[in-house]
Design a protein around this nucleic acid. Structure first.
Length: 381
DNA sequence: AACTCGGGGCG
DNA sequence: CGCCCAGAGTT
């Protein structure tokens, strides 16, 4: 049964070169590691923040967000005391906003339960909101030197190839498969560097489509490489294709002000601000949907004065085609049904609020249109 | 175990 | 376009 005749431990092949695997990997990492702002600190809070930002997010995307965020909130206490709007504004554009809301919740837990200090034991740290197996292992190993194997998408891919494991890396059950393998390959003599080296290897050498095996420091210990099967791994589950939804949005103007609404605190884009709108129903025009949604969400009867643009945007599980209309209030007083807050703001103030990406796709055009509008008005006088 | 949750980079 | 990304919470 044994895979390539190797001895097994818990079903995982043990090869005699584990020490060589560790030393080759570390040597490569220490010579090739990329510069990252969170690699210049030993502050557990900063390292924690970086790991949260790096969930499902590439390093280069996270870097500027990290620098702004850790400057604004250098400690758990500072984050705990901030307003959620300020936190979301700094997260704006990074996506997966529950990460920001959970991180702030966790910061408050740290202040209340741990005297403001990030706990250095795994059980306490992992009890915090938003801290799962990966972040727990990453922070414990990198910040505190504790032995914990971090398993992310990179590590699963590397281990899938190294051991030729057929478990699909994107399956729900994949973590249960790859965590014990990562434990077996873990290097307790260099917890933080080993974890980062595995991830760095996955990101820069053992890449999904175009692995650069010629540069790989552990190819002699890689089963797939030795069997010329690297590109057959990892196995991946096929994804369902995402549906498209049609959305209508109203930019409601009153004088020189616009109405913006704050989304409920959980779910999609929770806590972000947006222009009111919603789904276009079957056999309904986008314009009619805009009028209906404005009535339903903020209780205003509006009249569409023109169409601004159409915007396309992709989320994880669906795509949207969004028609944006300029509207004027005919009658009604604002009463909220759905949004948890709303506010009339001048165009220049929009930048103070966190908006979803789909809104940002038309805001520059909106500002341009409003500017043109005000120029025409002043010329008339 | 399946679903939800963003946005960008890249072939 | 589809895939992937230093995943975690909810159902």
């Amino acid at each position: 049964m044994a895979t390539s005749g190797l001895p097994l431990s818990n079903g995982i092949p043990i090869f005699s070169g584990m020490k060589r695997f560790h030393s080759q990997l570390l040597k490569w990492y220490r010579a090739n590691r990329r510069e990252m702002p969170w690699r210049n600190t030993s502050d557990p809070f900063a390292i924690w923040v970086s790991e949260v930002m790096l969930q499902q997010t590439q390093v280069n995307t996270a870097i500027p967000y990290f620098n702004r965020f850790i400057t604004a909130f250098p400690t758990p206490a500072a984050l705990a005391e901030a307003s959620e709007d300020d936190v979301l504004k700094l997260w704006e554009g990074l996506g997966y906003y529950a990460r920001a809301r959970n991180l702030q919740r966790a910061a408050r837990q740290v202040v209340q339960l741990f005297n403001g200090q990030v706990p250095s034991d795994k059980a306490s740290f992992q009890s915090l909101t938003g801290v799962g197996p990966y972040i727990s292992a990453a922070v414990m190993s990198i910040a505190f030197g504790r032995p914990a194997a971090a398993v992310d998408g990179n590590v699963k891919r590397v281990l899938s190839r190294v051991t030729m494991n057929d478990a699909p890396v994107n399956a729900a059950s994949s973590h249960a498969v790859y965590q014990p393998i990562a434990d077996r390959y873990f290097n307790p003599n260099a917890p933080g560097d080993h974890n980062q080296a595995m991830m760095e290897l996955g990101a820069n050498v053992c890449q999904p489509k175009t692995p650069r095996c010629s540069q790989c420091p552990v190819r002699q210990m890689c089963t797939a490489y030795k069997q010329d099967a690297v590109v057959q791994y990892p196995k991946v589950e096929q994804r369902k294709k995402v549906p498209t939804r049609h959305i209508a949005v109203g930019v409601i103007q009153k004088g020189n002000q616009l109405l913006i609404c704050k989304r409920k605190p959980d779910g999609l884009l929770g806590g972000l601000w947006e222009f009111p709108g919603g789904g276009v129903e079957k056999d309904e025009s986008a314009e009619a949907a805009c009028v209906r949604e404005c009535k339903e969400e903020v209780n205003l009867t509006v009249r569409v004065t023109g169409k601004l643009t159409t915007v396309r945007h992709a989320y994880s599980h669906f795509k949207i085609v969004m028609d944006v209309f300029m509207c004027a209030v005919q009658n009604g007083r604002v009463r909220l049904r759905g949004p948890v807050a709303c506010q009339w703001v001048r165009p220049a103030e929009l930048g103070r609020f966190a908006f979803p990406g789909a809104n940002h796709k038309f805001i520059p055009l909106l500002l341009q249109a409003l500017e043109l509008q005000s120029q025409l008005k002043s010329e008339k006088q």
